[in-house]
């Protein structure tokens, strides 16, 4: 399965919508927790949507080192390719 970073970013933005209650404009540099002002549980719930979408597991340990959407794009790509 080949997935470009741009495709993944676009998908993440769609999945982020219900969690982005303050309608912050999203970019690769957006800090998922700090810029969107959402709590740690919401971040985990968002990531669960990502996991289901791509049929991958993103362990919470990996998540603790994932700050921006760009970081998350890289995690998703690595996990999809590793699968």
């Amino acid at each position: 399965m080949t997935t470009s970073d741009a495709d993944i970013f676009e998908e993440l933005c769609t999945l982020m919508q219900p969690f982005n209650t303050e309608k912050v404009e999203l970019s690769l540099e957006t800090d998922i927790s700090a810029d969107l002002n959402i709590d740690s549980v919401s971040v985990m719930d968002f990531v669960m949507e990502v996991e289901d979408k791509y049929d991958i597991d993103i362990p919470l340990n990996v998540l603790s080192e994932t700050r921006t959407l760009k970081d998350l794009v890289a995690v998703v790509r690595a996990r999809v390719e590793g699968a």
């Binding site: 985990m44 669960m48 049929d55 991958i56 597991d57 362990p59 919470l60 340990n61 699968a83």
Partner: peptide, 27 residues
């Protein structure tokens, strides 16, 4: 407790055995 353990932590959907099964199968 999970954080202290240092183990890999995979979170599955609440009360959803199928979601757990999917994750176990992947691993």
């Amino acid at each position: 407790g999970c954080a202290v353990s240092g183990a890999q932590l995979v979170r599955f959907r609440h009360n959803d055995p199928d979601n757990l099964a999917k994750r176990l199968a992947r691993a």
